[in-house]
């Protein structure tokens, strides 16, 4: 089993994103605790996950906009088995698929609530978790 650079933690290394030029603004945004989404410069459509071309007007040029950070539960799963050893200590954990207000989806872990209370269409807000100095991931919380 491989271990991370932080060998004192004795935790296996978690899989990390390998951003490219197309996705780097998303990951840079998370580090600044902003959820950034790609938007077509021609027709204004928001798209996610990042890709080169707008499938509506076939324009390559795009901007990035900060999402409102609000959405509703589309679906979810609660994981009880770790298929990667890095996540074993986190079990059980819920992964929520969120319909963002910008009409794209986000998948992120649930924090602060019992997963048994999750329902389709439940309002949630996006929050951020600093994993280490270079990686921040989104998480979601049920809106009070």
């Amino acid at each position: 089993m491989t271990t991370s650079a932080d060998d004192h933690t004795r935790l296996p290394a978690r899989p990390r994103p390998e951003p490219d030029a197309l996705s780097a603004p998303y990951w840079d945004g998370l580090r600044a605790h902003k959820l950034m989404l790609q938007r077509c410069r021609a027709c204004g459509r928001v798209r996610h996950y990042p890709r080169p071309l707008c499938d509506h007007c076939y324009t390559f040029e795009h901007d990035w906009q900060e999402a409102r950070g609000e959405g509703r539960v589309h679906s979810w799963t609660v994981c009880h088995h770790a298929f990667h050893p890095a996540f074993k200590q986190a079990l059980p954990y819920a992964l929520v698929t969120v319909d963002l207000a910008e009409a794209v989806r986000l998948q992120a872990p649930l924090r602060g609530s019992d997963p048994a209370l999750l329902r389709v269409d439940q309002p949630v807000i996006v929050d951020f978790e600093d994993i280490d100095d270079t990686l921040t991931l989104p998480c979601v919380r049920v809106r009070a």
Binding site: P15, P17, H74, S75, T77, F83, A86, Y93, L95, Q107
Partner: peptide, 23 residues
């Protein structure tokens, strides 16, 4: 899926497909 989902513990088909079944 590797870049955006596996990094947060969504690593295998059981986890990919479970939200479809749940919905």
């Amino acid at each position: 899926v590797g870049e955006f989902e596996m990094v947060q513990g969504c690593n295998a088909p059981a986890q990919f497909y479970a939200p479809m079944a749940r919905r």
